[in-house]
Nucleic acid binder design. Structure first.
Lengths: 254, 254
DNA sequence: CGGACGCTTTCGGTCAGACCAAAACGAGTG
DNA sequence: CACTCGTTTTGGTCTGACCGAAAGCGTCCG
């Protein structure tokens, strides 16, 4: 094949011939071809540098780019590890960008509303299409949720787990990834929220109501129960950033 | 379920602090403080280098990171431009990662299913909450769609535009951004799809059916119409990648 | 006087070589 | 066999340099 340093054969026409791009492509193909399997270590920088006939600067840039795209995991000072990216790797890659949208409360509101919207659709879907084992998972999650009422920290975990089941029912891996992303992004505010066994009990009852509507195959009731649940939760969360809050409500984009 | 490997991309606070991080933070705050307004040029590298007392290597790394997070737009050989990131900037940042998920057909299917799922919820929402001007927008888009039937290229644009209106109705900027992302990711396959005035007419009729159900405030009918529409469309799209289809990949999300 | 052309400067992209500190590795010791 | 300690490897950073394209500027021609 080409151990040939620069094979700038193509599209780079427009003013840009970034050398790192070639390396990125090269490594990329070596990953998707399986030559660099998931979990494997990337060759040392100095090695790649010799291999592609480029300087370490470029090697490092290529690595940085691949890392930012989730193809390799580059922890500080550790040998980069090849990662076959999954949906949640993709989502977590957005994390950095999203963090800037979470500044004004409007950003959080938009994200939260999106979550509610999605989850409402998910409970409808669950009510219509949940299978026996889905219901069983839901019941198990609900039971764990109930048992955790006295322990707020544990309750939070079981709360998240209960909702997670909802995202698994469509059997589309995008949804669990979305759930992870949502909880990750919203967690900082969520965790600052005051919690108590009483609140936990109320939330647990909401969960129970949702599950019951699903079991009864009543999508409207299920959606309504979820809307109530998350709507009420929002009232509690919003308190965590009801500060002076400079009115910068940007949120949109061009 | 180990949550250890990659959380936010830069939680490397442990052990050693990356020097570039300080610079990233610095510039970051200068952006969100408004000192570096949207559209402004970033100071020259050699300037930043003096300013922060670091080498150009680090400056460049910091810039690369900010760029990967969408905070600045760094075209090759051009002075980096400050960008206040919006939702679709965030989504387009995922683009690079997503591209790897679009290899097997299962990736596309998952993404497409997600879109259908979302859009089904959107038409329900439209049927329930669309306002007069939303309906008007929908009608206008539908008219443009009809007028474009003879011209397949134009039809595609009006098709996208019609669906776009659906995403605008909730008035949550996340949705239009999602729409952009979906169309962008799916476009390559979509455009390879055979088109003809006859197909266009059928699609247009689907759109009409959706709109009618919305106007009649019938969420179930609207959702059904959309499911039919997109389900049929999928049958056409799938033909564009019915290749051997390497069986690996699937969807690990771990 | 104004715009086209060409020169100079600036600045991003790349390179080379070097040093440091932490990680990985291996040998020696209890 | 485990633990410690020293050596090698390797990623992170620095320095200083060069190239070429962009931008800035001044001249020259219409």
């Amino acid at each position: 094949m080409l151990d040939e340093p620069h094979a700038p054969a193509q599209t780079i026409s427009r003013s840009t011939a970034r050398t790192a791009d070639a390396v990125v492509k090269g490594i990329e193909s070596r990953i998707s071809s399986g030559e660099l399997a998931d979990g494997a270590f990337l060759p040392a920088e100095r090695e790649l540098m010799a291999e592609y006939g480029i300087s370490r600067t470029v090697v490092r840039e290529a690595i940085a780019r691949l890392a930012s795209r989730g193809l390799i995991e580059a922890r500080h000072r550790y040998r980069p590890i090849v990662r076959q990216p999954g949906y949640d790797a993709a989502l977590s890659a957005v994390g950095g960008v999203v963090s800037h949208l979470l500044n004004g409360s409007s950003g959080i509101k938009n994200l939260y509303d999106t979550r509610v919207f999605l989850e409402a659709a998910l409970v409808r879907n669950a009510a219509l299409h949940a299978r026996k084992d889905d219901i069983a998972s839901l019941r198990a999650a609900l039971a764990a949720n109930e048992a955790a009422i006295p322990d707020s920290r544990l309750f939070y975990a079981t709360d998240v787990a209960f909702h997670a089941v909802l995202y698994e029912i469509p059997r589309n891996p995008v949804f669990p990834a979305l759930h992870k992303a949502f909880t990750l992004w919203l967690a900082p505010h969520w965790e600052r929220m005051l919690r108590s066994p009483e609140r936990n009990r109320i939330n647990h009852l909401s969960h129970r109501a949702i599950l019951e509507a699903i079991v009864e195959r009543d999508p409207d009731a299920a959606e309504q129960a979820l809307q109530n649940h998350l709507g009420a939760a929002w009232e509690y969360v919003r308190g965590t950033f009801e500060e002076p809050l400079s009115d910068r409500a940007e949120s949109n984009d061009g």
